[in-house]
Amino acid sequence: MNRAAEGTLLQVEHLSMRFGGLLAVDDVSFEARTGEITGVIGPNGAGKTTVFNCLTGFYKPTHGRLSLHRDGEVYLLEQMEGHKIAQDARVARTFQNIRLFPRMSVLENLMVAQHNRLMVASGYTFLGLFGAPSYLRAEREALDLCRYWLDRIGLTEFADDQAGSLPYGGQRRLEIARAMCTQPVLLCLDEPAAGLNPRESGELSELLVAIRDGAGSDGQKIGVLLIEHDMSVVMRISDHVVVLDYGRKISDGSAEEVRGDPNVIRAYLGEEEDEELPPEVVADLTQHGGETRP
């Protein structure tokens, strides 16, 4: 299984991404596992979104290998086209700036996500045009999945409304549900709690934990990769956290370990080392004994 430990879902090895003179991602390696939420944190411009864009085929990495392990097969994401990554490797994502289909209805957004399955069922449209029973059955099943997710994210009564007319929180949840309707094995979320109020981000945390544990995937656990600024969310629900700064990975471990890592504290509080650290940070550091991982 290509050096991957049991349960490894995604393996990122020596990933680099260069934009002209800017090395946005610099030799980053980490792993994500099925049944775990892997948090990716770091200051603004650290390269988090760029990692996602490499994973989902929007950028072609300058360097590195991205392997996804599913059903005993290995998919090399860096060599696949964007839509194939979603279709074959089953990696789904959301966007930092929400990207719904704003003038289509909420329900249609979820139906579009099931496009490939429905295309096959409709005999690439030819059978479907004549209302073949197999297509009608597939459509009913697709609607059932939509219904389940609408219920789950509390948007059932807005099913026929334009997606663009939903309030912000609803749009965020709809985007997650839409990604889940592709039935992924790895869900990549780019700052899903941005712009949510504390109650909403609490509900979001619960939703993400449920998704990790197999809600909506017929009980199959999946892997979640979570970029987040809201520390309360990341630290509470992440099973494992990767910290990026200026494109480099500076820390990797459990939420506890990362929280106490002096590298992380420095990255978040500024570079000046001889500057006196705030008392609560010093307390934090001594408490955790500064377990640093290379």
Binding site: A86, F95, L100, H115, T182
Partner: peptide
């Protein structure tokens, strides 16, 4: 509506 979103959904 959004080609990038389409691609991310496997279309």
């Amino acid at each position: 509506e959004d080609e990038i979103a389409c691609r991310s959904l496997g279309i």
